[in-house]
Design a protein around this nucleic acid. Sequence first.
DNA 1: CTAGGGTTAG
Length: 520
Amino acid sequence: MLDPNTISWTSLMGGYTAAKQPNMAVWLFAKMPKNIVFPNAFTLSTVVNACSVLADVKAGKLVHAFVEVYGYQTNLIVCASLVDMYGKSNDLGSARRVFDSMVERNVVPWTSMIVGYAQNAQVYEALKLFREFSRVADDPPNQYMLSIVVNACASLGRLVYGKVTHAAVVKRGHESNEVVATALADMYAKCGCFESSLKVFRRMLNSCLISYTSMIMSAAKHGLGEVSLELFEEMILKGIKPTDVTYLGILYACSHSGLVDRGLELLNSMQAEHGVIPDVKHYTCVVDMLGRRGRLDEAYRLAKTIELRHDSEGALLWGSLLSASKLHGRLDIADEASKWLIEAKQQVDTAYVSMSNIHVLTGNWDDSQSIRSEMKRVGVRKEPGCSWVEIKDSVYVFYARDVSSCPRGMEVLELLKDLENRMKERGYIGGSKGLVFVDVEDESKEEIVNLHSERLALGFSLLSIPKGETIRIMKNLRMCGDCHEAFKLISSIVERDFVVRDVNRFHHFKNGSCSCKDYW
DNA sequence: CTAGGGTTAG
């Protein structure tokens, strides 16, 4: 073009962003003034969007400055793009400032702001904003807004919130929207209702790749590995091509239902069958699968062969191997895994605590203590483990070694005692795997229990000595992939509306870290 | 030529 104008430049930037090269869009924006072409509202929102994709808040702030300079701070779309950019860059303060300054708002910036809160571990804030929108806005919530709100309810794991949002979805007639329905199915599963999840899923007319992948993962999390495998077969028959995420789900399913050999087969055939090349995340999942079944030598051998592009990729891999070594009493492998983590500066707190605990479990109290001293010396602190349960619409949060922070903690203790008795009736006592309590004096048990609780995800950290056995059983049930059995036992005690939440629910949180305290 | 949503291993 002899004389490209603002529109030509903007088109080009939009094209680069669409072609997954948003950095080129930003680069072009910087070149505009030299060519005596000036940005308008279209240009600015396009380049803000490029910054959003890059999650580059620095570039975004520069563009924001241009927005002010050129006087577009009252433009709805430009501001909407800024809210989105700040939210996706984890700068919620700036996102909110732009949002509050807007003279005119439609459902889009409201949605962006809700997404911002929801994906930065401020789910309650996100839901609050949704309620405010419903009160003040002229438009009804659409499928975009509803899907993110359903997603927010899912990450809270609180069924009541999810049900209320489901009602809003029905009221607005967005039940049949594929994205909303997938979010609903995911929400029910994460809130502990696998049956409702499957019901929503089965009502969908065209279950697509993501809905199948999500459903496979849900079944797996509920200990229903066979159901995951059936769903996988079904989607293949429908001609839907699995992706790397689908394979991750199916490997996870095998791992958590004890289908180790099936999992290995799938790993070995995925490339030939569906052209998905196994990468670090798949191998990590398989290492975990072998490890939890006690096949630690194989797990270790596999782990050593995996090429990491970055140390952060090894955090999960060696962390998982460490936890399996601890469970099966393999001090040698645990030692190497924790060394790897500490040297790579990944999960250092967990590595130290795990090593200290494994020494306790094998009776080496002195080694355990010296690691605790080392932690103090180098200033490593472990954030206390946190778990929560939901009983009939109320949530009870537990911190390891802290009874007082939980309201009605004593009642929950009673519940746990009951749980323990029922498990004993079912013969779950003794004979479990691991080296727990081997060669340890009775009076040491309390310490073991306390140490163990730090990483327990089931809310049983309050237990004292006699109930220590319960912790052990629950943990082993989970580690053996029999979590469905554990869930059933828990449900049978409370009869209904009992949801057990894992602490590892921050998958949606992109950058930086967040603590359980932020969450609740 | 412009802004928003669902699945991801310990």
